[in-house]
């Protein structure tokens, strides 16, 4: 009888431990998300927050594929690729969005080819800027996209 009670207690405390553990774990799932950079209202703050600097050398080895004219700013297809060596991340910025930093792709494994393709929202006609981190240096390139209907309206 005593033993049974003891078992229940042990089980109970184990379960409690698991719940506390889960509670502690939850915020950790977001630890990587850089709020300062992704909520920044201007490009220098976003770039410095994410990449440690807002200065990047312009490189035409970064190719940005995006439409010249986007009829619908809510869905603008953007592809970025580069033949720069040692690329560890590619970030995409829409220069006139309220929060300009849109996405950052971090290549954890060297097998990943410096290529990303996604669809972004653009509030108005602006530059799509791609920032590439290669080695310890930052490179960038830009492509202007004319937006006829903004994608962040309301």
């Amino acid at each position: 009888m005593i033993d049974a009670k003891r078992r229940t207690l042990v089980k109970g405390s184990l379960a409690a431990g698991a719940v506390v553990g889960a509670g502690l774990m939850a915020p950790r799932a977001f630890a990587d998300w850089n709020a300062a950079a992704f909520q920044a209202k201007d490009i220098p703050t976003a770039m410095t927050g994410l990449l440690g600097s807002d200065s990047a050398e312009v490189s035409d080895r970064i190719k940005i594929k995006a439409p010249d004219i986007a009829e619908n700013g809510a869905v603008v297809p953007v592809t970025v690729e580069t033949d720069l060596e040692g690329v560890t991340s590619i970030s995409i910025i829409a220069s006139k969005n309220q929060t300009p930093l849109i996405a950052s792709f971090e290549f954890v494994d060297p097998s990943v080819i410096p290529f990303v393709s996604t669809r972004i929202k653009m509030a108005e006609t602006a530059d799509v800027i791609a920032v590439v981190k290669a080695g310890d240096k930052l490179y960038k390139n830009a492509k202007n996209v004319k937006v006829t209907i903004g994608g962040c309206g309301g």
Partner: peptide, 13 residues
């Protein structure tokens, strides 16, 4: 893990 990405709400629906 080969790639980790972080996004804002600026990625399309």
């Amino acid at each position: 893990v080969v790639m980790k990405t972080s996004w804002s709400g600026g990625v399309s629906k």
